[in-house]
């Protein structure tokens, strides 16, 4: 049994979101150092604003400007900031009720240490130097010793060049471990052998093995070497060049039933003009120096397989 394999895996994706009228006005306002809330029918001012009343679900659109100063309603000291959090040095997470608002906004508070932070303390927004229309236009909050300022003032929410969408990049880092069955499969591949697993109940051989028989719901445990030769069961001709793929079109991508396997795997077919590939074509893998899997499959020169020999694997 080989060691369980592992490899770094990075999942990176942008959240691309369009903004409705309320969120657009709020985020554009931040860019202009203006904080907007939204007033509910009950007279509460919600900051950050939402489009629907959290109690009645009524659509709410009446914008109102609140102050850039406020009061901490709860806090938590973060001694070890994580990547992408608002500040790189220890800070307090805070919920802040801005003057003129009835609800609180989550952000970071720059403070020298936890002993300087308390619920009820007065804070003000420290604006980011470069602002784009995002919650991060507030760099953080900072302590402020002034009294409560400003009453909410009506605002039409109109700005020149409003922000209508946001793109929030996200990156998550993983250490991928494929597990028992796939580790064994990859280990065999590194020795240019293709090893599947047989179901103890229905005796089908799965390649690549996923650890369980999807028909019987039991673990596949018996290792079975398959191939290396196989039969093209079906194929397609790729005519559009994929981004970042160094391969001339057209080329053929095929399902290949390796000899001894009960499930077709897929791979590229080479060594034959694309328009001569056919169902039943007998093929074998071509390994390249240092490759971790077959680069492609090529014809063996054997006579084509009978349709009956592979029809169950289509």
């Amino acid at each position: 049994m080989p060691e369980a394999l592992s490899a770094p895996l990075v999942v990176e994706f942008p959240f691309t979101r369009s903004l409705g009228p309320v969120q657009s006005a709020f985020l554009t306002g931040l860019r202009e150092r203006t904080v907007l809330g939204v007033r509910t029918a009950g007279g509460k001012v919600l900051v950050p604003p939402v489009e629907y009343d959290p109690v009645t679900a009524e659509e709410i659109r009446e914008l109102t400007e609140v102050a850039a100063t406020g009061t901490v309603t709860t806090w938590a000291w973060n001694p070890a900031p994580r990547p992408a959090q608002p500040l790189a040095t220890p800070f307090a997470w805070v919920l802040v009720r801005l003057d003129g608002a009835d609800t609180a906004l989550l952000h970071a508070l720059a403070a020298p240490g936890p002993e300087t932070v308390r619920t009820g303390m007065r804070v003000r927004i420290r604006w980011a130097a470069e602002r784009t229309g995002a919650i991060t236009d507030i760099a953080c909050f900072e302590p402020y010793d002034g009294e409560e300022t400003g009453r909410p003032a009506p605002h039409d929410g109109v700005f020149t060049d409003p922000v209508t969408g946001i793109v929030t990049p996200a990156r998550l880092d993983y250490r991928y471990t494929p597990g028992r069955a796939q580790s064994a499969y990859l280990d065999a591949l590194s020795r240019q052998r293709i090893v599947g697993e047989r179901c103890p109940s229905c005796h089908k051989v799965y390649v690549p093995p996923r650890g369980a028989c999807p028909t019987c719901g039991v673990a596949t445990t018996e290792r079975v070497e398959v191939g290396p030769r196989g039969t093209v069961t079906t194929f397609c001709i790729v005519n559009i060049k994929a981004k970042n793929l160094d391969m001339d079109v057209p080329y053929v991508y095929a399902h290949i039933a390796l000899d001894g396997a009960d499930l077709a795997l897929h791979a590229r077919i080479g060594g034959i003009p694309y328009d001569q590939v056919r169902m039943g074509l007998r093929v074998e893998p071509v390994w390249t120096e240092g490759g971790r899997h077959p680069d492609h499959y090529r014809p063996t020169g054997e006579p084509d397989a009978d349709y009956d020999a592979y029809k169950e694997l289509l």
Binding site: R17, Q23, L27, P48, N78, Q85, P86, W93, T168
Partner: peptide, 14 residues
């Protein structure tokens, strides 16, 4: 993703 996601407030912080 508008008001919270960009700040990456982790589960322990909240």
């Amino acid at each position: 993703p508008y008001y919270l996601g960009p700040l990456w407030p982790d589960s322990v912080a909240l």
